[in-house]
Amino acid sequence: MASPSLFSFFLLPILLSLSPTLSTNSEGNALHSLRSRLSDPTNILQSWDPTLVNPCTWFHVTCDSNNHVVRLDLANSNISGSLGPELGELKHLQYLELYRNNFGGKIPMELGNLKNLISMDLYANRFEGKIPKSFAKLKSLRFLRLNDNKLTGSIPRELTTLSNLKVFDVSNNDLCGTIPVDGPFGSFPMESYENNRLSGPELKGLVPYDFGC
């Protein structure tokens, strides 16, 4: 007959594997960390169960054939709270749709780690602070809508390197300084900048002078 200690040696790992724990999936952990920051009065995140192997069965989360999160859509959900650096762990994310909510605080610079991002829609929230310069690393980005927030500071000149950017909207914020014209910024309409403290557009090729910004 096996000794109690030997029995425990074999049984304990099995019991631990059956006990509810946080997902070992980094994307699931990142989304669960996000949920902990949020107020969700209509309970749209009730399916976000951290004990699952991955978050691909959660509502408002879309995965590809390899079970990587490629879309997060929490638009029009009456959610409030802040975003944290954990969102930068969603390395395969292509679409980040958080518009028309009550998100506040600063936009995390870690969003610049989302190298596969095609569209980022953060408009109609309460984000404040500066537009992260790290967004310049989002070389696949085509749509960046930050309008109708409380953003301050100038438009980072680093964003002029985003050659794939087709839509850029920062209207209805409190931005200041001059409007870039290099790179894709030569094609964006002036409506993209209205209701700020911006001036310009600046003269092409000259160093921007953001007086009082």
Rank of each mutant, 00 (worst) to 15 (best):
residue 7 F to K: 08
residue 11 L to N: 05
residue 14 I to Y: 10
residue 16 L to D: 07
residue 17 S to M: 09
residue 19 S to Q: 09
residue 19 S to G: 00
residue 19 S to V: 00
residue 22 L to P: 03
residue 26 S to T: 07
residue 32 H to I: 15
residue 33 S to G: 11
residue 33 S to K: 13
residue 34 L to S: 08
residue 34 L to K: 04
residue 36 S to F: 05
residue 39 S to C: 06
residue 40 D to Q: 07
residue 41 P to S: 11
residue 42 T to N: 14
residue 42 T to R: 06
residue 43 N to S: 15
residue 46 Q to E: 13
residue 47 S to D: 13
residue 48 W to F: 01
residue 50 P to Q: 12
residue 50 P to Y: 07
residue 52 L to H: 13
residue 53 V to F: 10
residue 54 N to W: 01
residue 55 P to A: 08
residue 56 C to H: 06
residue 58 W to C: 10
residue 59 F to T: 10
residue 59 F to V: 02
residue 60 H to I: 07
residue 60 H to N: 11
residue 61 V to A: 05
residue 65 S to W: 05
residue 68 H to S: 14
residue 68 H to C: 10
residue 68 H to K: 15
residue 69 V to H: 05
residue 70 V to H: 03
residue 70 V to P: 02
residue 74 L to Q: 08
residue 74 L to D: 14
residue 75 A to T: 04
residue 75 A to C: 11
residue 76 N to M: 13
residue 78 N to Y: 12
residue 79 I to R: 03
residue 79 I to T: 10
residue 80 S to T: 10
residue 81 G to V: 00
residue 82 S to W: 03
residue 82 S to Q: 10
residue 83 L to H: 06
residue 84 G to K: 11
residue 86 E to A: 14
residue 88 G to M: 06
residue 88 G to R: 02
residue 91 K to E: 08
residue 93 L to V: 01
residue 93 L to A: 04
residue 95 Y to A: 10
residue 95 Y to L: 14
residue 97 E to R: 10
residue 97 E to D: 15
residue 99 Y to V: 09
residue 101 N to V: 01
residue 102 N to H: 13
residue 103 F to Y: 11
residue 104 G to T: 07
residue 104 G to Y: 13
residue 106 K to H: 14
residue 108 P to N: 06
residue 109 M to Y: 10
residue 111 L to Y: 08
residue 111 L to K: 05
residue 113 N to K: 15
residue 114 L to Y: 01
residue 116 N to L: 07
residue 117 L to W: 05
residue 117 L to K: 06
residue 120 M to A: 15
residue 120 M to E: 07
residue 121 D to L: 09
residue 123 Y to M: 11
residue 126 R to N: 12
residue 126 R to D: 07
residue 129 G to R: 04
residue 135 F to Q: 03
residue 136 A to Q: 14
residue 136 A to L: 05
residue 136 A to M: 05
residue 137 K to P: 00
residue 138 L to N: 03
residue 139 K to N: 12
residue 140 S to L: 03
residue 140 S to N: 12
residue 145 R to I: 08
residue 145 R to M: 04
residue 147 N to D: 15
residue 147 N to M: 05
residue 149 N to G: 06
residue 149 N to F: 01
residue 149 N to D: 13
residue 150 K to I: 02
residue 152 T to F: 02
residue 152 T to C: 07
residue 156 P to M: 03
residue 158 E to I: 10
residue 159 L to C: 08
residue 162 L to R: 05
residue 162 L to S: 09
residue 166 K to T: 12
residue 170 V to S: 04
residue 170 V to W: 04
residue 172 N to P: 00
residue 173 N to L: 09
residue 174 D to I: 05
residue 174 D to R: 14
residue 176 C to E: 14
residue 178 T to V: 15
residue 182 D to Y: 02
residue 186 G to V: 08
residue 187 S to R: 02
residue 189 P to T: 02
residue 192 S to F: 01
residue 194 E to S: 09
residue 197 R to T: 02
residue 198 L to V: 00
residue 198 L to G: 04
residue 198 L to N: 01
residue 199 S to D: 00
residue 199 S to E: 04
residue 201 P to E: 08
residue 202 E to I: 10
residue 202 E to V: 09
residue 205 G to Q: 03
residue 205 G to N: 01
residue 207 V to F: 11
residue 209 Y to L: 07
residue 209 Y to C: 08
residue 210 D to V: 09
residue 210 D to R: 14
residue 211 F to Y: 06
residue 212 G to I: 04
